[in-house]
Nucleic acid binder design. Structure first.
Length: 468
DNA sequence: GGAACTCGCCAC
DNA sequence: AAACGTGGCGAGTTCC
């Protein structure tokens, strides 16, 4: 039987990857067990205080009276019943099964002060759950996350027992507590190697869109800043200005990435207004949303300009107008700016419908029932991860063959985490750059754009929360 | 009393 | 024309 060389390559990548990841698993990540116990108890006391306060509030007393039984404040079902059936409030959204939502967005929108206590206790419990899991899984002060290569439909990895790939990093309080429990071996330091914009770059290897390739090749250009200018009608983005940086984040996480995943302007409008610029889904008034820039009107500087002031000034006066504006931008995005990308998406979807499968650049085949978005996302997600896996395998060999003291201890889709001996730092960092950015594109000729990594060093004996 | 489900929420 | 991809895990709930 003939085996396609790419299939052989994919097969070999999984085999080599499993072994390299098993070594990381055996090595493990040091947990400060005393800290974890202490912090767990401290959080428990805090949670009990907040829960008691909540349970004694007028809100809960009434809830309990209407329920005619003991209530469980952690039950979404009971809470939804009280809010939406008893109090007859209108949920801002529903869950997939049709029940009124009781997630953070939905509860915040109700403007019931007592619910803030519930949300805060939820958040603290979530943090405590991580510590609990670490504690249960640790053996002699080390956790040993399991890395799977055979679960994800995309041929990405998954991780469990514990899943180290979802430790909090966006919320400061959660990051500090949870990552603050994880350390390198004594005298060592944690090192993270992160491919920057990996999925965008790998997508470009499929669609070959010239505009996208220009963005990637020119480090001075910035797709997200350009989109922020277009979305918010400003001349340029100066990333050192905090409000500008927020607008760039809004464009990136509220429009560009969701669009790449297959989302559309209506959701983008809601996400940008809710999550980033804080504008209501109504007609806008002056002085709403995030603080933006000083506004100069006829030589008078108005110091506290807000984003609504600016947008109203630019003739976008309501949420509906903004949504329409985003619809135009979406059209421009796929018909003008990234038209080759759009054509590739369509070709890829047609190909799947004709043949019933899609093949990744890395030799893996995805079949079965797939949606249009699946067809577009899987090959990119998978191949991007395979770039990381290839690099991890090579780095593992370098460390093993050279009998270095530094060890790979984990991987998060586009990044590698190492427990490094500081004496090996000056040798290792150039080697890592060489493997990840030079050797990989040499090995895989379909990589037609430059690759880049961020290397973050944590302090010697510092935790995963301590910045270098 | 466990399997399978829903919901919420953490990461990329 | 239609409309956000991949995971893990906890609590609550329902089914058998």
């Amino acid at each position: 039987m003939n085996i396609h060389p790419k299939t052989q390559q994919a097969y070999q990548l999984l085999h080599d990857g499993v072994i390299a990841l098993a070594r990381a698993e055996r090595q493990g990540i040091r947990l400060d067990v005393d800290y974890t116990r202490r912090k767990y108890r401290q959080l428990t006391r805090k949670i009990e205080g907040i829960e008691n306060k909540f349970l004694q509030s007028k809100f809960c007393v009434d809830w309990k009276r209407k329920a005619k039984k003991e209530i469980n404040p952690n039950s979404g079902k009971q809470l939804a019943w009280y809010l939406y059936d008893v109090l007859n409030l209108t949920p801002v959204k529903t869950t997939p099964s049709g029940q009124g939502s009781t997630d953070e967005d939905a509860l915040s929108a109700l403007n019931i002060p007592e619910l803030d206590d519930l949300l805060y206790s939820r958040k603290l419990k979530k943090i405590r759950d991580y510590l609990d899991l670490f504690q249960r899984e640790q053996v002699d002060g080390y956790i040993h996350p399991v890395f799977n290569l055979h679960f994800a439909r995309t041929f990405r990895s998954s991780c469990d027992s514990p899943n180290i790939q979802n430790t909090p990093k966006r919320d400061d309080e959660a990051e500090k507590i949870v990552r603050g429990a994880l350390f390198p071996r004594p005298g060592h330091q944690l090192l993270e190697v992160d491919y920057s914009g990996l999925e965008v770059r790998i997508a470009a290897c499929y669609h070959n869109d010239p505009t996208m390739i220009k963005y990637i090749n020119d480090p001075k250009s910035d797709m997200h800043s350009d989109m922020a200018c277009q979305i918010f009608k400003i001349d340029d983005i100066d990333k050192s200005i905090p409000s500008h940086y927020t607008l760039r984040q809004a464009a990136k996480n509220g429009f560009v990435f969701p669009q790449f995943y297959g989302d559309y302007y209506k959701n983008n409008a809601i996400s940008i207004c809710n999550d980033w610029v804080k504008l209501p889904q109504t007609s806008w008034k002056w002085g709403q949303g995030i603080r933006f820039m000083p506004l100069i009107v006829e030589d008078i500087t108005i110091p506290y300009n807000t984003i609504s002031d600016h947008l109203i000034y630019e003739k976008i006066k309501s949420f509906n107008a903004f949504e329409k504006h985003l619809q135009d931008i979406e059209y421009d995005f796929w018909h003008n700016r990234f038209s080759e990308y759009a054509k590739w998406k369509e070709r890829w979807w047609q190909g799947y419908q004709k043949y019933g499968y899609i093949d990744m650049k890395t030799g893996f085949r995805c079949g079965g029932v797939m949606s249009r978005n699946d067809c577009i996302n899987y090959p990119v997600q998978g191949a991007a991860f395979h770039c990381l896996l290839w690099s991890l395998i090579k780095l593992d060999r370098l460390l093993t063959v050279g009998e270095l003291d530094t060890k790979i201890i984990g991987q998060i889709h586009d990044s590698i985490i190492l427990d490094m001996n500081p004496d090996e730092r000056d040798y290792l960092i150039p080697q890592i750059r060489r493997i990840t950015c030079e050797k990989l594109p040499e090995a895989w000729d379909w990589i037609i754009v430059p690759l880049d990594v961020d290397i973050e060093l944590h302090p010697v004996d510092g935790s995963w929360a301590d910045k270098g």
